[in-house]
């Protein structure tokens, strides 16, 4: 009986912890903390942006509207709070692992470690995550929504050329 009780309790804990791991829950947990700047853009706002006919994209700036129309959420957390940075990084890594994200790129430069992940198929991206960790700063960017992989890569390449 004792074993069954323990097993059930462990299963429930596992279920709860798995439930807590996504971009939204990470945003909810850390967005109000001190020394943290947070940005959330909802699907409704993305739809609104996509409908603006005369969107000013500036001088030679890349037009993001085709991708924006397909996004359903964007969560950005930038933390300079040393007491939560490790926790935030660990939780983001757990979310990446649980969400079956694939490593797209890893860059380690001047003490900064940047990892980019995507989830989806060969042609479609269902989610993108960037986790950048510096000694005193952690940045978490999570994009939800279906984007064509080619479209996304082209967009990033265009931005790089700017």
């Amino acid at each position: 009986m004792k074993r069954i009780t323990l097993l059930l309790a462990a299963l429930m804990l596992l279920c709860l912890s798995a439930h807590a791991q996504d971009g939204k829950s990470i945003y909810q947990k850390y967005s109000d903390a001190e020394d943290v700047s947070a940005v959330y853009i909802s699907p409704a706002m993305f739809r609104l942006i996509g409908k603006i006919p005369d969107l000013e994209t500036g001088d030679n700036k890349v037009n993001l509207t085709p991708v924006i129309r397909s996004l359903t959420g964007m969560y950005i957390i930038n933390s300079e709070n040393a007491s939560i940075n490790d926790q935030l990084r660990n939780e983001a890594e757990r979310f990446i692992k649980a969400g079956k994200y694939e490593l797209l790129m890893e860059v380690k430069d001047h003490g900064e470690a940047v990892r980019m992940y995507t989830v989806g198929s060969e042609k479609l991206i269902n989610g993108f995550v960037m986790l950048a960790a510096e000694p005193n700063e952690v940045t978490f960017i999570c994009l939800d929504g279906q984007m064509g992989r080619d479209q996304f890569e082209k967009l990033v390449a265009e931005q790089m050329a700017q």
């Binding site: 853009i41 969107l55 924006i68 964007m74 950005i76 960037m130 950048a132 960017i141 931005q159 790089m160």
Partner: peptide, 16 residues
């Protein structure tokens, strides 16, 4: 909001 998305994409591109 669009400006912020643009900023986020710029950050991603810079790191790339």
């Amino acid at each position: 909001a669009y400006a912020e998305v643009e900023k986020a994409f710029q950050t991603i591109s810079d790191k790339m």
